[in-house]
Amino acid sequence: MPAMQEILLLVGRLNYVWTNTESLFIYLISHLMGTSKEAAIVVFLTLNTTRARLDLIERLAKLPGTDPADRAQIEAFAKRLGREGKLRNKYNHCIYSFDETGERAFTQLMRISDVSDDIRYGKIEVLDEAEMERINATISAVTAVNRDIWGFLNAHGIKA
C-alpha cells in the first residue's frame, strides 16, 4: 500500500503536468483565433474550467477556415485530454484519508448520485498500487499530449 507522502507527491505531479499542458491552450487559442497571445490569455482565463477551454478549442478548430490537418490534430489533443481528465478530476475532487500509520490510503468522492428515491454521496475507495499505476499512466499520457502540442506549435512557428 502506498504511503501518504508518495500519494500526495504523485497527485501533485498529476496536477502539475495537467496545468502545464492546459496552459498550452493559450497558444492554440491564439493560433486558431488569429489573435495575440495577450488576447488568448484573456480568453483562457475568462473560461474557468478545463471543459470550457476544451470546448472552445474544439469549436474553433471546426471553423471553416481551419486547415483540416490542424483540425484533426487539435481534436485529437482535446479527445485525449478529455479521456485523461476523468482520473484527474477524481483526484482533484475527493477527500483523502489515511490510517493512523499513514500507510493505508482512501479517497472519498465528493459527488452526489441520485438513485431512485435516495441520494448517495462520498463513495470511499482504497488507493492501492493498482490505482497508483493508473495515476502514473495518466501522467504519462498527459505528458505525451504536452509533447505533441509542442510539436504542433513548433511546426507552425508558434513561439511560446
Rank of each mutant, 00 (worst) to 15 (best):
L109T: 00
V115L: 08
L127V: 06
I139E: 03
I41W: 03
A76P: 02
G102C: 12
L109A: 07
I135F: 00
G157C: 09
T21N: 01
V115E: 13
I124V: 06
Q73H: 09
M110K: 14
A130H: 01
T35L: 12
S140P: 08
N20D: 13
M1T: 02
H156N: 13
R120D: 07
H156T: 03
W150V: 15
D55Y: 05
L32R: 02
L45Y: 04
I158R: 11
T46F: 06
R83L: 13
T19I: 06
W150C: 15
A72K: 07
D55H: 05
I124A: 05
N154P: 08
A39C: 06
M1N: 02
N20S: 08
I119H: 08
D114K: 06
N146G: 10
A160L: 14
A40R: 12
F106P: 01
H156L: 13
V145H: 11
Y121G: 11
A69C: 01
E125S: 04
N48D: 15
A144P: 10
I57L: 14
T46H: 10
K123R: 05
E133R: 00
G34D: 15
F77C: 06
I149S: 14
L87P: 00
R59Q: 07
R88N: 06
V17C: 03
R80W: 05
E6K: 10
I124T: 02
D148Q: 09
N15I: 08
A130R: 02
F25N: 09
A78H: 02
G85H: 10
A78P: 04
E131P: 00
S30G: 14
S97P: 06
Y27H: 15
L28F: 11
L109W: 06
G157E: 08
L81V: 09
F98Y: 12
N136L: 02
R147I: 09
T143R: 02
S116I: 15
N154F: 14
P2S: 02
N92F: 11
P68Q: 12
R51G: 13
A78S: 12
T107R: 05
D70Y: 07
I135D: 00
S97K: 12
I95D: 13
K123E: 08
A137R: 01
L45C: 12
M33K: 15
L54F: 13
P64L: 12
L127H: 01
F152P: 03
